[in-house]
Amino acid sequence: MVLATEIKGYNVLPVSLPKAQTTHYIYFKKHETRSTDNQKNSSGRSIFLCNLPIGTTTSTLKKFFQEVAIGATIETFVASLLNDCPEDVWINLTKLTSDLEFNPDLQSARNTNDEAARLPKNCGVVTFVDKSAFQLAYTAIRKLSAARTVSSWPFSTYDSKYFLNHYKSQILDAEALSDAVSQALVDFDRAEQESRDNLQQQTQLVDEDGFTLVVGSHRKTKAGIMGKQKLAATVELDKANTKLKKKEKEDFYRFQLRQRKKDEMNELLQKFKLDQEKVRLMREKKRFRPY
């Protein structure tokens, strides 16, 4: 059997899982990021892995690289959030519900989270401590791939304890939770405060036409105002329209009466036609067979 060693620029790495006759295939590639905003530029030190076996964690990868490329020390491993989720894409509801900018302290944590959310299912990015470690690991697995050597994969073992722990992990420790919650709320308050301050600054600004932005006391973000304005416009319009309608007399002129009668009859006719159509469709579906 001759299987390709490279698919669309990805190398194929065959691995074997414990107690199995068949082979699992991992696809990998050098990971390249557009290194513009990323201060801790990991580009050049990372490998993008695709179709990882289930349950792949940092320790799994550490074990694996220990086997195939001793000395290639792993810094981080980011797995896709979708690994444990049947959906195809990850959605960040926070971003969709608020445009608050969060504290830069949290930024890095959020960044990895963002990256994890962007990764497709069963994919991961492994980053090595330095370029040489990366090089070591990369050449090692490329060699394996080219030679089609099947190496064994340190698959994490599962048993009923795993599932029991899964249940247990759902129960949250009250103290830790309480700390986390208060920290998150403090962060949120701070973010909100900053946004409000920003907004206040804008009220000081006078634009070229000589207008300033008016901000209500409850307003927190700028986008909120825009949304509100859109809504207000439509509400006003509706009000005006209903007012106009109220004044109008509908049975004053004879033509109005006639028109109405005509409309009603037309409606009746239309309904009748609809009925006929419906019955025709029923007939086509052989609905009128009583037996």
Binding site: V2, N51, P120
Partner: peptide, 20 residues
């Protein structure tokens, strides 16, 4: 056709460099 978004445990198809 192979793509990272497949999300399916796949294996390469014999003698093909794009399909899994």
């Amino acid at each position: 056709k192979f793509g990272v978004n497949l999300g399916i445990d796949s294996k390469p198809v014999e003698e093909s460099s794009t399909e899994v």
